[in-house]
Design a binder for these strands. Structure first.
Lengths: 180, 180
DNA sequence: AATAATAAACCGTCTGGTTGGTACAGTAAA
DNA sequence: TTTACTGTACCAACCAGACGGTTTATTATT
């Protein structure tokens, strides 16, 4: 059934994300994902005809989740910058640490699987540029936010949780100033 | 001999970086590095007792190179922020694109190999905070610069080369303003 | 409603290939 | 003679994917 298949696919992706988060990006193997998800390897390959397809789906889901969260914040009245900052902060907390690192590292094996991420970035830049009147300060804020996220992703953040919190608050204040 | 060994090690690391840049992070195998470097697999393992040791050396070299470039700029009279921005820009051009992505992705397989990177980041933040009088704007600029580098690394930059150039120029102007 | 037919979802094993690493005998240089 | 390798042969583990078979759900037929 269509619905059942969707649920199964989601479960497999979730399992893959867990494997990546817990064992590291290099350990995302079909066998391991099968074991964790509870489905068989054959079942995996029925839904995702190749490992690449699975990783691609993982990336897509991350992008979709982030974008959905951002849209929700926009609908609540936040400006593009603020929404982005909040969405990223939320994502950083979501699964403590390295879920996304895993995806990116896995995707790095097959360059090109990150193109959905790039597209999402482009949309973001356009939104922010449009709303800020091409103010480079706004783009800088966006980039700084990205960097915090990248650092968390790779567990190389030079900041304490407290410092990061202060930074994010400062950024949100700044975001309100910049957006008319 | 010590000198000869050093040269050989450097050649092996360079070969490994090339493999990573050309074939992707996941394809950095001992056999491939041996083939590209011109040394035998036995030779590799003589100098780097494990793959982990090799990757660790790759990361360390990247960090050292970047830090050396930054120190050079500092010695020439640039302030900490400007030096950092220039050093990153240089690094982005250096090997067109994905050398560093490869290192990071490879390192992601063995979490913890990135700790030299984290340490380097901490030093950077301290330098910039000290020199700017803990101005959060300076940290923001640094983060934005980081983000540009991360984006290049993963080939997900939403900017054209021209746009990035303009951004970097804007950032350098801003850096001069912020630094007394 | 019972049954048969068909398709979708899923299982578990097998295979061919790759990988990191070992062992070791031998060669060349310093 | 020690250091720096070469080259080969080898191994155990791992891995992606193929494959044939089995169960479950849906549809068609009687």
């Amino acid at each position: 059934m269509n619905k059942r298949a969707k649920v199964t696919k989601a479960q497999i992706i979730e399992a893959a994300l867990n494997v990546a988060a817990e064992k590291g990006a290099g350990k995302v193997t079909l066998d391991e994902v099968a074991k964790v998800s509870g489905f068989s390897k054959g079942g995996l390959l029925y839904h995702f005809p190749s490992k690449e397809a699975l990783i691609s789906a993982m990336v897509q889901q991350l992008v979709d989740d982030t974008e959905a969260g951002r849209q929700q914040l926009l609908a609540q009245g936040d400006n593009a910058l603020t929404a982005m900052i909040k969405a990223h902060a939320r994502l950083s907390e979501q699964v403590q640490g390295n879920t996304a690192m895993a995806i990116l590292a896995a995707a790095a094996e097959q360059p090109g699987l990150l193109s959905p991420v790039q597209q999402a970035c482009q949309v973001l830049v356009q939104d922010i540029n449009a709303e800020s009147g091409d103010n480079p300060e706004a783009v800088l804020l966006m980039l700084a936010c990205d960097a915090l996220w990248f650092q968390d992703m790779l567990s190389i953040s030079p900041f304490t949780a407290q410092q990061k919190e202060q930074l994010l608050q400062y950024m949100q204040r700044r975001a309100k100033e910049l957006m008319p």
